[in-house]
Design a protein around this nucleic acid. Structure first.
Lengths: 204, 204
DNA sequence: GTCTATAGCCAGATAGAC
DNA sequence: GTCTATCTGGCTATAGAC
């Protein structure tokens, strides 16, 4: 008899907090703004999440839990390296259109709060690169792809897919692109990035 | 007779402010911490820079003025595209070792304060991509490199070089690398990244 | 130019009624 | 569970002596 609107309010808070924290960061976010967006008052935030830090951590874990499966898709399915790169590139860019702030948010807060690294590793969905490494070794041995370190390739894949979203304002300025033009470039990258990577690593 | 320790103090402040702002961001930075690092008191910060916002802008412009020439090196010298990629990759990674926070700082604050984009464009060193575009068109026409949009290639070059520094904590966690191992990977990238790009775009 | 002291504000957190 | 009112601390910024 006590949890009538309970779950609903909690979700409204988390949703509002997500927006504010991801736009302003931990330090720039204001509890008042979160409360306003959630349609409640500050006291309720503390009632549900005790303090700002814990609310922030809830948002962080939520965000990471959305991102992690995207990465596992590259690392742990059964298709070939080439297929993985194609699928990941297309899917990740679509994912980013829906959740544009997530990677920047995670990277940013990880740079500021090194203690979050452990929290992230404790997440049950934390990606594991081992299978990807083994698969690379195998395909290199078979002569399907050129010799390249699995770690370097993984970094390259992440960089080419994630960076254009994180550095969007900077890149837009450099190439004198307006919003529409930049969107067009990102859309093209759904296939261009995969081709770029595959051209580089595939044996002919 | 009045500017005895003047210049010196101003530089000490800027240097301290650089450290604190780049580590904590505009919102997380504390004037007290900057004063402590500079070996003076808070009142002096206001005496020299009037307020936090103006001090921050001074640091931002300083940072951008260091980064911009690195980019102009890719865009506006006279060597071939291949040479530019090689030189930029090697030089940029060396630059990053000396100034590890700069790109993240710029990208972060640009995401938060869209009005800084104009300030950045007003910087006399602001990179111009036009020459790079023309050169690409020419080399593609000559059959030296495969057809690829200049903008996409520029994004790729930036992504492969910058992202490993910005996302360092995240990538370190994913690939289970300690500090030494990660440094080794970055060192290897001074040549690996250039090879990766060139393999992808060069006609054989 | 440099300091100490303090004004003034604003944000996170809590008390307590309903 | 939800609200209003308030406490408390910390931060930017300024006043004013030296």
């Amino acid at each position: 008899m006590k949890k009538t609107k309970d779950k609903n309010t909690e979700e409204q808070i988390l949703n509002a907090a997500k927006q504010v924290f991801q736009a302003k960061g931990m330090d720039g976010a204001r509890m008042q703004e979160i409360a306003d967006k959630a349609g409640i008052n500050k006291a309720m935030l503390h009632y549900y999440f005790r303090n700002k830090q814990l609310l922030f951590e809830a948002v962080f874990n939520n965000a990471f839990s959305l991102l992690a499966p995207q990465l596992n898709a590259v690392l742990n399915d059964d298709s070939s390296i080439e297929e993985k790169i194609k699928n990941f590139t297309a899917n990740y860019i679509s994912f980013m259109v829906d959740h544009p702030y997530i990677p920047n948010f995670i990277i940013q807060e990880l740079n500021r709060n090194p203690e979050f690294i452990q929290k992230m590793k404790d997440n049950p969905n934390f990606p594991n690169i081992e299978k990807f490494k083994d698969q690379m070794d195998e395909e290199i041995k078979k002569g399907i792809i050129k010799p390249i370190g699995a770690e370097q390739l993984f970094i390259n894949i992440m960089a080419l897919n994630v960076f254009p979203f994180i550095a969007k304002p900077l890149l837009k300025a450099f190439i004198h692109a307006d919003e529409a033009h930049y969107r067009q470039l990102l859309e093209a990258r759904k296939t261009e990035v995969a081709n770029f990577i595959i051209s580089s690593i595939k044996t002919t």
